[in-house]
Amino acid sequence: MRQLPLDVQLADYAVFESFYLGSNAAAVHALGLAAAGEGSPVVWLWGPRGSGKSHLLQACVSDASQRQRNTAYLPLNLAHGLGPSMLDGMGQVDVLCIDDAGIVAGEPDWERQLFGVFENLTQHGGRLVLAASGAVAACRFGLPDLASRLMSGETYRLNGLTDEERVAALQLRASWRGLELPDETGKYLIARVDRSTGALFALLDRLDQAALAAQKRLTVPFVRSVLEQR
């Protein structure tokens, strides 16, 4: 059963197979284990924006749900406004993925609620995966009981991608949607477009539609013409 609190949709691309590993293979493996209910009871992922945290968390939920596990993806940046009681019952879930976990640090009610979720979840053998922009210590949780528990699991920093890896990631994503992205087009794109991973992938959506409409392949001249239309 898949539980989706709020109006959150898992992105269709967000599966493990479409994630470019780069130097992050160990982290991806740890999340794969979590989705299967194995490995460390708690996994903390951190890294800069665009390093793929949300992608991986959603992939973990998607995988867990295919395994018929009770699972939920919870982006706290969106859920924050609902107040800490929105975490009620989350301790019963098998695989719980909490995105932007750092934003509730310093809010006693949220921290206590999160603490309760942690205790319930780990008591019945559930897996908790959290992502934030920094390590647990850097988030400055006010409740030491919570912070120390969050530190008791595996912590992974997601490394950003080099330019070459960025091209490869773009190609992987393109091939995943059935597009072929030649090397030189990839290089062309990362040299000319906002480098953030999110922006690149958004652009890929646009190129996909344009290529479909024009029945063209993603050559440099074609891509240039699409970019100029903006």
Binding site: A25, A26, H29, A30, G39, S40, S148, R149, M151, S152, G153, E154, T155, Y156
Partner: peptide
Amino acid sequence: SNVRELEGALRRVMANSAFT
């Protein structure tokens, strides 16, 4: 600081070793 954090560090080392 505390044993939980020690455990976290150990887990990470063991996971890396198992993985590689």
